[in-house]
Amino acid sequence: MLYIKCPWCGWRDESEFGYGGEAHIKRPEDPDALSDAEWADYLFMRTNPRGSHRERWVHTAGCRRWFNAIRDTQTYEFKAFYKMGEEPPGGEQ
């Protein structure tokens, strides 16, 4: 069981949270201008790193806020938690 720190509620059990996949994926400004391949890239392609991964979580059973986290995909260790709209700690990767 993971222990996750909601930026508002603090440390809570994993059972209170939902997972939202990779974070910081920006919706294209003008989807009509994209090729099918570019649109598919936006919809489906993820970086799937081995190691540090910036991802979204939602505190479903608590305050119901979405937030971001950095988690190591090999060890499951969380490196950071930060609110939506905040810069990832450690800067861009």
């Binding site: 509620c9 809570r12 059972s15 209170e16 059973a61 608590g62 305050c63």
Partner: peptide, 10 residues
Amino acid sequence: CAQTLISHAG
């Protein structure tokens, strides 16, 4: 106060 789960019930 806190919102949480008690045996799956919110």
